[in-house]
Design a protein around this nucleic acid. Structure first.
Length: 436
RNA sequence: GCGGCAGUAGUUCAGUGGCAGAACGCCUGACUGUGGCUCAGGAUGUCGUGGGUUCGAUCCCCACCCGCCGCCCCA
């Protein structure tokens, strides 16, 4: 019988790595809270048509990457239903916004989420079939200011602050406007027409894209094609005046706030619902998967799935990729491994008759907030020391003498000093700051 | 989904068509209430899985699985 393994593209996250995941999630919660975002948790699977109608039937995500199955009827009265593991979370958030009539509050809804997403892609570093996203959405009726370019700028400024506070240096904000749905359709036609005479001189991928998805031609990385791409019409030239003014207001606010950005008229996003402002934060050192996060405005998304007019803007960050970036940075800085993984004390009972009193002592200290590793009285003292040195900053020896006298033997591994400490003074002794 | 490279101990990796190796880590002892430094011992394992070639395969061949790199796509 073959042994069972995590399936392709999925993986286990183990300590100590999970501490880094928690640090990132905690930082996100803290930063988002300062911008007054609240957490939303939506189901991990939804009706398949939600994604088909929002992300777009023709996108790669919907057409070939979703985990979809038919949930069979269990009773005469039930109908079978096609369900899909969510490949992204914006659609679920907007569905919840509509379902709970959050637009009726009249207020802008500012929601963030943290959770796994699923896409059946070929796995690679930074690309998994179950991957984690941290994202946020600001959505509401136009009367709540949901269309304001200030919302776009605020979100981008929040992301810059988040990455800075996480300690990710060297990111680039790539910014573009793809215009309204009408602007975008017009540009698509213009581009398609312009490509008819040019495509035959381009790479085979571009020849295909010129027909299937002209916007993707702009993303081509083949060097020989670059001069041709430079001559193609720019999306900026297809934007209506409203889109132009909106985008100008976004960039002006970013400049005022001192958030650096790089205009990239070729930035194209793969989900159909994006309108006007679109962006990516990229980082070198992630290989082919260089996008740390991406997002944009989606002014028509709510209507496209049967909801009220509810413009919005949001983003999704690849948590797996944030972890990779921070791990690479820590590997670079080498030197001191983080020492935060150690307990405050290891309690070493001397003999199995001391096990129960040791648990009592551990309970006292743990209830006082200390991180305690509890040894075993069957260990010889030498073995307790070895185990303690690996897992804790102090060892507390609990033998018959200590139990009778109430004076414990404590050794500080950093200094090598061993002292006798009355039980009542143990908490203050353990609380003393350690040399970091 | 396409092309390429890899898979050997807990980890990082050597290696050979003929008994499976190193370093680190782990366990035991020198030392029955004192770790780190020593020293002496010990265990590492379906050599990714399944077939094939061969007297004999961890090694060569094929398929599959899984990972990595690029494409594609995206976070």
């Amino acid at each position: 019988m073959s042994t069972l393994k995590a399936v392709r593209g999925t993986r286990d996250l183990l300590p100590p790595e999970t501490a880094l995941w928690n640090r990132i999630e905690t930082t996100a919660r803290q930063v988002f809270a300062r911008y007054n975002f609240g957490e939303i948790r939506t189901p991990i699977f939804e009706d398949t048509s939600l994604f088909a109608r929002s992300v777009g039937e023709e996108t790669d995500i919907v057409s070939k990457e979703m985990y979809t199955w038919e949930d069979r009827a269990r009773a005469q009265s039930e109908k079978p239903q096609s369900l899909t593991l969510r490949p992204e979370n914006t659609a679920g958030v907007v569905r919840a916004y509509i379902e709970h009539k959050l637009g009726e509050t009249g207020q802008l809804q500012k929601l963030f989420y943290i959770g796994p997403q699923f896409r059946r892609e070929r796995p690679q570093k930074g690309r998994y079939r179950q991957f984690w996203q941290i994202g946020a959405e600001a959505i509401g009726p136009p009367s709540a200011g949901s269309e304001s370019p200030l919302r776009d700028a605020e979100i981008l400024e929040m992301l810059a602050t988040f990455l800075d506070e996480l300690g990710i240096a060297g990111w680039t904000l790539e910014l573009n406007s793809v215009g309204s749905a009408a602007d975008r359709a017009r540009y698509n036609d213009t581009l398609r027409a312009a490509l008819v005479p040019l495509a035959p001189q381009m790479c085979v991928d571009c020849q295909r894209r010129a027909v299937t998805n002209p916007l993707r031609v702009l993303d081509c990385k083949v060097p020989e094609d670059q001069p041709i791409i430079e001559t193609l019409p720019k999306i900026g030239d297809s934007l209506g005046q409203e889109s132009i003014d909106h985008f100008a207001a976004v960039t002006a606010a970013l400049q005022a706030a001192g958030v650096p950005y790089h205009l990239n008229p070729r930035l194209v996003r793969g989900l159909d619902y994006y309108t006007r402002t679109t962006f990516e934060f990229t980082h070198g050192g992630l290989g082919a998967q260089n996008a740390l996060l991406g997002g944009g405005r989606y002014d028509g998304l709510s209507e496209s799935i049967g909801g009220p007019k509810a413009p919005g803007i949001g983003f999704a960050m690849g948590l797996d990729r944030l972890v990779l970036t921070l791990q690479a940075k820590e590997a670079d800085q080498s030197s001191a491994p983080p020492q935060g993984a150690k307990a405050d004390a290891y309690i070493a009972p001397l003999g199995e008759s001391l096990n129960a009193p040791a648990l009592t002592l551990a309970r006292e200290l743990r209830r006082a907030g200390f991180r305690i590793e509890l040894g075993d009285g069957s260990f010889r003292l030498k073995k307790s020391f070895e185990a303690a040195d690996k897992t804790a900053r102090h060892i507390v020896i609990l033998g018959e003498d200590e139990l009778q006298s109430g004076i414990l033997t404590v050794k500080d591994f950093a200094s090598g000093l061993q002292t006798k400490v009355p039980r009542a003074e143990l908490p203050s002794m353990l609380a003393k700051p350690m040399a970091q």
